[in-house]
Nucleic acid binder design. Structure first.
Lengths: 119, 119
DNA sequence: TTCTAATTCAACCATACGGTTGAGATAAAA
DNA sequence: TTTTATCTCAACCGTATGGTTGAATTAGAA
């Protein structure tokens, strides 16, 4: 169990909400890459790619090592564990054919308990 | 394996990137809720909460059943499976103490294969 | 029919996002 | 030293986001 704080979850999920950044992470899974290498596959300016990388850093998903004029980026996967756990809670609602029954039961239930003021 | 399309992943992760919407999903895990019930815990207008719910619908995470003037929202967890899988790929990078070794190996590796033009 | 309740819609606002360009900063190469 | 390469920074732009308010829509309740 990792239980990230809400603001960190915000940053992680926000970072993942962009295909460019997701592709960058996939690339980093193969190993360290420079900013230039990370930017190369994309049809955008270096500055734009640099901003994406900063979003990943803000989320704690990338750590940067500066060597001279070159910045090496490495995957930092740990915060993903928290996001994974958060989503994992819902696995019960999509796994197996029980989910159909579950769904039906929850629907019934909400009819009976509608407006019971629970939090 | 679920493999959501990029645009759906965008929408799902974007939807999850907001604490208000995450809390709404947690609430919906207990059962169906009306728009009003979903909005109630939050210090914002109904209209604002309504927009959040629409973001969840766009991501396919909520389905709505209209009965008279009341809109009932229900959790639709399936798209979360795709997001869960996507993140799950990185589990190898955070699980167990192997991750430290892995990280070291990948760093070495990237020194040797730097600029090999892989995609 | 008239009142009230549950929601959305439309217009608006401030701020964030994702992109651009051009100008630094810094370090390696000539 | 001068040139070139790697990146960030700053300013700007259009569009999206997250919020507001007030009016419109629709349907139970009196």
């Amino acid at each position: 169990m990792v239980e990230l704080e809400a603001p960190q979850l915000d940053a992680v999920f926000h970072a993942l909400g962009d295909a460019t950044r997701r592709r960058m992470l996939r690339r980093l899974a193969e190993g360290e890459r420079t900013v230039g290498e990370l930017a190369e596959p994309f049809d955008m300016s270096l500055a734009a790619a640099s901003k994406h990388i900063k979003a990943l850093e803000r989320a704690g998903l990338v750590r940067r090592r500066i060597a001279g004029r070159t910045h090496y980026c490495a995957l930092e996967a740990r915060p993903l564990a928290g996001a994974h756990d958060w989503i994992g809670f819902y696995e019960q609602f999509w796994t197996s054919r029980l989910d159909i029954l579950e769904g039906l039961l929850r629907r019934e239930d909400s009819q009976k308990t509608k407006g019971d003021g629970d939090e």
